[in-house]
């Protein structure tokens, strides 16, 4: 039917005007779309280009660092720079400390933060909004002010200069986000599902484990990326709370002034890579789960 109508010769004038207007609108939309993509590409370059530069230099021979103009296409591959960094005093130990701190932080902040997030999401208790605000306002507290007294306390407790002290500090830093993010994750799991489980023989606890948790898992994984990266990159508290048991950022920061340029670039790449890998791994898992769960 419509194809016949379209083939009719000499459409009325009003129709033609309408068509022209529609085409003009379409052109404008296309232009808007183009601008949007251009902006996206620009932003992506803004982030990716330095990463790219760091990566190729980190895997070039040491002399290549000083080349000018810079070569955008990697020349000879060389692990020399990287080996120099990895072999440097304390790097492997610091790397191990960093991983340990990040994992402990992740576990602590999830164990403490997720239940608080669940409570915020599901229960209307007195002072809920105030609690939300207070949780967030702890972030306004400068780390400097927190770190010094904490260092003193940690020395008294005998956990100063250990992985635990840094992990505790990072947990405190991560908690506001964990609480707020997990609460929004739990809100997104429909209450009906939980109630359905309750009518099917579940206690509130089993309903949580069997229904809410599996559905919240992708979101919780996303929150854990955030926590991991936050702990991995945190440098200030780590510098103050450790002397010998440095985390990687603390070690790099301490060594930065005295180290040659290739060392810095290699360190930069080393800091970057694990968070990128972690994000990529978990991201695929996220999409997989969400793709199945969402309708």
């Amino acid at each position: 039917m419509t194809s016949i109508a379209r083939d009719l010769p000499a459409a009325p004038r009003a129709d033609r005007e309408a068509v022209a207007a529609r085409q003009a609108r379409a052109r404008r939309r296309l232009l808007g779309r183009g601008l949007l993509y251009a902006a996206a590409v620009l932003l992506a370059l803004w982030v990716l280009f330095p990463i790219y530069l760091i990566t190729i230099t980190a895997f070039s021979p040491r002399d290549a660092v000083y080349d000018y103009p810079k070569q955008l296409i990697p020349g000879t591959f060389s692990a020399e720079t990287m080996r120099f960094f990895v072999d440097a005093e304390g790097v492997l130990g610091a790397l191990w400390n960093s991983v340990l701190v990040a994992v402990v932080t992740l576990i602590f902040s999830t164990l403490i933060g997720a239940p608080a997030g669940y409570a915020l999401a599901r229960f209307a208790f007195r002072g809920r909004d105030a609690f939300r605000l207070i949780v967030l306002s702890t972030r306004a507290f400068p780390i400097v002010i927190l770190s010094i007294p904490l260092a003193v306390s940690f020395i008294e407790w005998g956990i100063y200069d250990t992985v635990w002290s840094v992990a505790l500090m990072h947990t405190a830093l991560a908690l506001p986000f964990t609480v707020l993010i997990t609460s929004s994750i739990f809100i997104s799991v429909p209450r009906d599902l939980e109630e359905a489980a309750l009518t099917l023989g579940c206690t509130p606890a089993t309903a949580f484990v069997k229904v809410v948790l599996p559905l919240a898992l992708p979101g919780l994984a996303a929150a854990s990326i955030f926590t991991f990266v936050l702990s991995w990159n945190e440098v200030f508290a780590a510098v103050i709370l450790t002397l010998r048991e440095r985390t990687l950022p603390a070690l790099v920061l301490a060594a930065l002034n005295q180290s040659p340029v290739p060392f810095r670039l290699a360190a930069g790449w080393f800091m970057l890579a694990p968070s990128l890998i972690f994000i990529f791994v978990i991201r695929r898992y996220l999409l997989g789960l969400w793709g199945r769960v969402s309708r």
């Binding site: 429909p190 009906d192 359905a196």
Partner: peptide, 9 residues
């Protein structure tokens, strides 16, 4: 339930 509340997982 009105929303069916079928467990998606």
């Amino acid at each position: 339930f009105q929303s069916y509340a079928v467990f998606p997982h």
